[in-house]
């Protein structure tokens, strides 16, 4: 009899299982899609680095059997920027949550997109700060109940694809934890795309967000996605705001070309210094990394 093995044991740290995520949480599904995308993108696993910040999704890096960095709250993107610029041959993925990337780390998000640093940002949006017990955040829809919006959230939330496109991302998509196949494909495209790629993953948080808002369990949330999702790749990102229990538009919204930070740096210095300048990280670029 052969011993049963996990199909992803080459890419997950099985010695760290069981993971910390709650039953019905969408992060596990998103990690599955991520692992499948890494396989589909056919990037050598030794050349991949995953960087997370802090929070429930911030724990993703720790479960990937890759070079993985669990950094400080909000600083995954600048850490990843340093990693990528120091070793341009790496494929660098930032996998973190909405609070980490868009609130405390929001400034880094817009500037990395503006510079078009060649990294992939996979942002799991569960509409609240889950690790700390379910507080409102920059994506909490009005008027959802959280521990810090006990009478209902009244701040206007960010639409992440709009923010990403407006800041300069070259690839922008949004999927949910229900759309495993499409999410996997989108993550694969993002990984293969040079420049700042952004994938938002809408995911259930049954323990905190759903419970406080009496929305049922994780499966109930997936039913909501099933019933209320509109797939529209052509959607205008200005119209992708998410209202409380409203329809959610998903799709691969943006796929465009713009010189990366490293391309622009090499172009500029070649113009100025001519042959004296040896283009930085040239080999990696030629390999389409």
């Amino acid at each position: 009899m052969t011993e049963a093995t996990h199909p992803m044991e080459n890419i997950l740290r099985m010695d760290r299982m069981p993971h910390i995520w709650c039953p019905g949480c969408g992060i596990g599904t998103a990690v599955t899609a991520f692992a499948m995308a890494l396989e589909k993108a056919e990037i050598p696993l030794d050349n991949i680095a995953v960087v997370s910040g802090i929070g429930c999704t911030g724990r993703v890096a720790g479960y990937m059997k890759l070079d993985s960095f669990h950094t400080t709250h909000g600083r995954a993107i600048p850490f990843a920027t340093g990693l990528k610029l120091a070793n341009p041959e790496l494929t660098v993925i930032v996998f973190s949550g909405d609070g980490d990337l868009i609130a405390i780390g929001g400034n880094h998000f817009i500037h990395a997109a503006r510079r078009n640093v060649d990294i992939n940002v996979f942002c799991l949006n569960n509409f609240n700060y889950a690790m700390t017990g379910g507080q409102s955040g920059p994506t909490t829809p009005e008027p959802a109940i959280t521990t810090t919006s006990p009478y209902g959230a009244f701040e206007h939330p960010f639409s992440l694809p709009f923010l990403a496109e407006g800041s300069g991302a070259v690839y922008v998509s949004r999927w949910t934890a229900l759309h495993i196949r499409r999410l996997t494909n989108s993550m694969t495209e993002a990984l293969q795309k040079r420049g700042f790629s952004f994938v938002e993953i809408i995911a259930p948080c049954p323990t905190l967000y759903s419970r406080r808002n009496r929305l049922g369990d994780g499966l109930e949330e997936l039913k909501y996605y099933h019933d209320q999702i509109v797939i529209d790749h052509e959607a205008d990102t200005r119209e992708l705001g998410i209202g409380f229990r409203d329809q959610i538009v998903v799709g691969n919204f943006v796929d465009r070309e713009r010189p990366t930070f490293m391309d622009a740096l090499n172009t500029r210095f070649t113009e100025v210094f001519g042959k004296k300048y040896e283009p930085y990280g040239k080999v990696a670029h030629e390999n389409g990394n």
């Binding site: 960087v51 960095f69 950094t71 400080t72 909000g74 600083r75 993107i77 600048p78 850490f79 990843a80 920027t81 340093g82 990693l83 990528k84 610029l85 120091a86 070793n87 790496l90 400034n107 880094h108 500037h111």
Partner: peptide
């Protein structure tokens, strides 16, 4: 905040 975070990343990237 970004500067020091990038410096740590740069060091793990080998520089």
């Amino acid at each position: 905040l970004a500067s020091i975070a990038a410096v740590l990343g740069g060091s793990w990237g080998g520089k």
